[in-house]
């Protein structure tokens, strides 16, 4: 009897996994067709690329800040490492393999710098860590501009970077990042990270080495930020150090905070919403930042948990939500 129930629940899991896969494939094919028939033109596609990159950045920062509770203001620094490494490699080796190597090398370099930055700074708490990571990102920026200028062309930046990011790349990298990061979070390692956010002393007392898991989250986050950076340089074929300043780190933070610290689906939703907003405000870049600033304040004042809180969008969540709406409507009628 019990076995039967287990088997059927196993079946259900199977069906839901298959359903998810199917909808992803469908999503991919539909957009591929739209692009092939030029319904999604170059302009719309560039928006799509920005959304994908922002999703990767936000999800990876959420791992560090939302799930592990380590407030980082230097995420753009890791992104810049991925961008520069990938650009330098693809400029030398103009081929898809060059791009693949650049992508991986960029991510790995970002992760290595993540270890170097994380080991000393992650001992710091809250706001001190925020300032230290901000400082690290500024130092990385200055290195790219003034010290490594033989390779990075200094403040003038690199241009003419070969463009490889097409819809399949964009899709695989974005969806892949989201899946991998959620796999991480729903594992014992992920739970260790979350326990550190909840209460570091209690976590330590339960046998969780907080430094190890903080660094793990930080390095994983840095790795994916590196991927996002590589995608950026490969699609927009121009980079300079100032693209990856404090401003960019804040942009990413806004997405994470709006979506909900500790919610992957929240980050995805917020990345889409904010990119659409900034698409409409393209002519007024200052206004966009004013709105971002106001948004941060308003979220913290009125809905500090963001759009999703720490929940995830799932079928059962949707059902509950629509059920509640239905009830409300029913009550009104």
């Amino acid at each position: 009897m019990g076995k039967n129930i287990q088997a059927s629940s196993g079946n259900r899991k199977w069906i839901s996994t298959a359903g998810k896969l199917l909808s992803l494939v469908l999503f991919f094919v539909v957009f591929q067709l739209l692009i092939s028939f030029n319904v999604v033109n170059d302009y719309l596609f560039s928006t799509l690329v920005k959304i994908g990159i922002n999703i990767i950045l936000a999800v990876s920062l959420n791992l560090i800040t939302g799930f592990t509770g380590q407030f980082s203001l230097g995420h753009a620094g890791f992104m810049s490492i991925g961008a520069y490494v990938c650009a330098i490699i693809t400029l030398r080796y103009y081929s898809v393999w060059g791009f693949v190597c650049g992508l991986l090398a960029g991510a790995v370099c970002a992760a290595i710098v993540g270890i170097l930055v994380g080991l000393p700074t992650l001992r710091l708490k809250g706001d001190y860590l925020a300032i230290a990571t901000l400082g690290m990102a500024e130092i990385i920026k200055i290195l790219f501009r003034n010290v490594l200028d033989k390779w990075t062309n200094g403040a003038a930046g690199l241009s003419g970077i070969p463009q490889f990011v097409s819809w399949p790349w964009l899709f695989v990298l974005t969806v892949g990042t989201v899946i991998l990061v959620s796999n991480f979070i729903n594992s014992s390692h992920g739970r260790s990270c979350i326990s550190i956010r909840e209460d570091e002393i209690a976590a330590e007392s339960m046998g969780i080495g907080s430094t190890k898991y903080k660094v793990m989250a930080f390095v994983t986050g840095a790795f994916f930020a590196g991927i996002a950076g590589a995608m950026y340089s490969s699609y927009f074929f121009y980079i300079d150090p100032d693209l990856f300043g404090f401003q960019k780190s804040i942009d990413i933070l806004v997405i994470v905070v709006l979506g909900g610290m500790g919610s992957i689906s929240g980050s995805v939703i917020a990345a889409v919403v904010l990119e659409l907003i900034s698409m409409f405000l393209q002519a007024y870049p200052e206004l966009k930042m004013v709105i971002y600033g106001a948004l941060l304040v308003l979220i913290m004042l009125f809905r500090p948990q963001g759009i999703m809180g720490s929940r995830e969008l799932s079928l059962s969540f949707l059902k509950k939500w629509t059920g509640r709406l239905g009830q409300k409507n029913g009550g009104a009628a």
Partner: peptide, 30 residues
């Protein structure tokens, strides 16, 4: 000092993490 915003089950599972042996590779790729 419980992990206040986590479920009862997760509170207990977290305390068992020190015995879990699977590595990062298994984590990411299930």
């Amino acid at each position: 000092r419980l992990f206040r915003d986590l479920t009862v089950l997760d509170n207990v599972r977290i305390a068992m993490n020190k015995n879990v042996k699977y590595g990062l590779f298994s984590t990411f790729l299930r």
